[in-house]
């Protein structure tokens, strides 16, 4: 057993991994059935990253997740009732039905911008002299966006308390990271900004947690930003819609090989092998997770849609008469 994670905590980690996985699987299923509109960008297979990071966070720390961040959000304690309600476009949703999957709970669905946002949050912490840390998630695809470079450089020169977390799942839609970068590890880029970069096994909760803990503590104690690259793999398609396109950009063998290192499987094997719990204990958790998923979907399904006039609300935080203008009438 890992000393930081006694039995109860270990089982809770399992529950959250499972809940994150099932949330996304269920969302895709309901999307395919036409009940959830739009597209879901799932991170099935990548759950250990958000969970490992969440274990290292302290109260008051803020994360800026990506469009593939449902499981990370759940790991941080979000209530899936309101998440499903958002995906269903209901008024009870996290964003009152204005954001959907890609902007759930106010995250940015534009690649790389969460690095800015996190650096900005960290700047606020630093100006106010608060001992808090921001985490900015991005992927291997976003790594090549100019704004990511700008954010990292400014975070470095101002020594901002921010940890940039690269969820490297090896493909930007279909483009391999081996094509888009010559580097073995994207964390090598940290050296160019003058801060620390680490690459860890993103399928292993403990590896992510340990690295995140070290980097968050450094940021908190005034040592500035860092880059944590978590090597991982997306078992599902880029987005729910692309599954229908039947794109061939990776071999079935490759996918199967990575599935053997499924983070939930690694964690549950570990718990059973180390006799922290039995397979039956985990089965009980699985059943509870299923119940929670079903209840949350029911909550979403039975929630009200927003009023049609809500379409024009919240466009401005300081409202003025006459704006926004309607498109007709």
């Amino acid at each position: 057993m890992i000393k930081e994670f006694p039995k109860e905590k270990s089982l809770e980690i399992y529950r959250l991994l499972r809940l994150g996985r099932r949330f996304e699987e269920k969302s895709i299923e309901l999307g395919d059935q036409g009940e959830i509109p739009g597209s879901i960008h799932a991170g099935i297979g990548m759950e250990a990253i958000g969970l490992g990071i969440s274990l290292a966070l302290q109260k008051g720390d803020i994360t800026r997740r990506t469009h593939r961040g449902h499981a990370a959000m759940i790991a941080e304690g979000a209530d899936i009732k309101y998440m499903f309600a958002e995906l269903f476009g209901r008024v009870t949703g996290t964003n009152k039905g204005k954001g959907g999957s890609m902007h759930i709970a106010g995250i940015s669905g534009v690649l790389g911008s969460n690095c800015h946002m996190a650096a900005g949050v960290a700047l606020a912490f630093k100006i106010r002299n608060e001992k808090r840390v921001a985490v900015g998630y991005f992927g291997d695809g976003a790594a090549n966006q100019g704004p990511v470079h700008e954010a990292m450089n400014m975070a470095a020169i101002w020594s901002l308390p921010v940890v940039f977390v690269c969820e490297n799942n090896l493909y930007a839609v279909s483009t391999s990271v081996k094509y888009s970068s010559l580097l073995e590890n994207l964390s090598q880029r940290a050296k160019a900004y003058g801060f620390k970069g680490i690459t860890v096994d993103g399928m292993d909760v403990v590896s992510v947690y340990k690295a995140a803990k070290e980097l968050l503590e450094a940021a908190r104690s005034g040592k500035g930003p860092s880059l944590l690259e978590c090597k991982s793999y997306r078992f599902c398609c880029h987005s729910a819609g692309t599954s229908r396109l039947n794109l061939h950009y990776r071999s079935d063998e490759e996918v199967e090989k990575w599935k053997e290192r499924c983070p939930i499987k690694l964690w549950s094997d570990k718990l059973i092998n180390e006799k922290t719990c039995t397979a039956d204990d985990l089965k009980i958790i699985d059943e509870k997770v299923e119940k929670e998923i079903e209840d949350a979907v029911d909550f979403a399904r039975n929630s009200k849609f927003p009023d049609i006039e809500d379409a024009f609300k919240d466009m401005y935080a300081t409202p003025y008469a006459g704006i926004p203008q309607k498109g007709w009438g």
Binding site: I62, R64, G106, S113, C115, H116, M117, A118, A119, G120, V121, A122, L123, A124, F125, K126, I127, A134, G146, P147, E150, A151, N153, M154, I157, W158
Partner: peptide
């Protein structure tokens, strides 16, 4: 702390200001 010179990074500093504004600045 309140008068901040930036590198030539318009996209970057506008984004950073957004993040800071969302956090109460």
């Amino acid at each position: 702390d309140r008068v901040i010179n930036t590198p030539i990074s318009e996209s970057g500093f506008v984004g950073i200001a957004t993040g800071a504004a969302m956090e109460g600045m």
